[in-house]
Amino acid sequence: MSKSEQINPRCLKRDPYPLWLFFGFVFIWGWLAFEPHYRSDWLLENILVFIAVPVLGWIWYWGNISRLAWSCIFLFLVFHEIGSHYTYSEVPYDLWWQKLFGFSLDQSLGFERNQYDRWVHFLYGLLILPLVAELMERLFPLDSCLRWLIPVMIIMSHSSLYELIEWLSVEVFGDELGQAYLGAQGDIWDAQKDMALALMGALIACVVCFMKRQFAKP
Score class of each variant (00 low, 15 high):
L197W: 06
P141T: 08
W29P: 00
W96K: 09
V170D: 09
I204R: 00
W167I: 06
F140Y: 11
E112C: 05
D117M: 04
I188E: 15
P9R: 01
S160T: 12
E134I: 07
A184W: 11
F101V: 09
A180L: 11
D41N: 15
G57W: 12
F50V: 14
A205G: 07
E176Y: 15
E137L: 09
V170S: 12
P9K: 03
F23C: 10
E5A: 14
V53P: 01
L131D: 03
M195E: 03
D190G: 05
V91F: 09
T87M: 10
Y17C: 06
L139K: 15
S104N: 09
P36S: 02
S4T: 14
L146K: 10
I150G: 00
G125K: 00
W42H: 08
Q185T: 07
F210H: 11
L109S: 11
E137I: 02
G57Y: 08
Y17P: 07
V26Y: 08
S144G: 09
I150T: 01
F122K: 00
A191H: 06
M1Y: 13
A33D: 02
M136D: 01
L75W: 10
I150W: 00
H80V: 12
I65N: 01
N8L: 04
F101P: 04
L95K: 14
K13Y: 13
A33E: 02
V172Q: 08
A52E: 03
F50G: 08
R213I: 04
G30H: 07
P54A: 13
G183Q: 01
L199M: 05
K193A: 14
I65C: 01
Q115L: 10
L77F: 12
A184T: 10
G30P: 01
W119D: 02
M1D: 12
S40K: 09
L197F: 12
G63L: 09
S2P: 10
Y86P: 00
H121P: 02
I155Y: 00
L48I: 15
L168R: 08
A198I: 03
L146G: 04
Y93G: 04
F34V: 09
V120I: 15
L146Y: 10
F50P: 03
Q214C: 07
Y93V: 04
A216S: 15
Q107R: 15
A196W: 00
Y162L: 13
A33F: 01
G178D: 04
Y61T: 12
E171L: 14
Y88G: 01
F23Y: 12
W70S: 01
E137H: 11
I128R: 01
G63F: 06
N114M: 07
I51Y: 07
L68S: 11
L43S: 09
F25N: 01
W97Y: 15
G30S: 06
K217A: 13
Y88A: 01
L129A: 02
F27T: 14
P151Y: 00
R147E: 07
L131C: 06
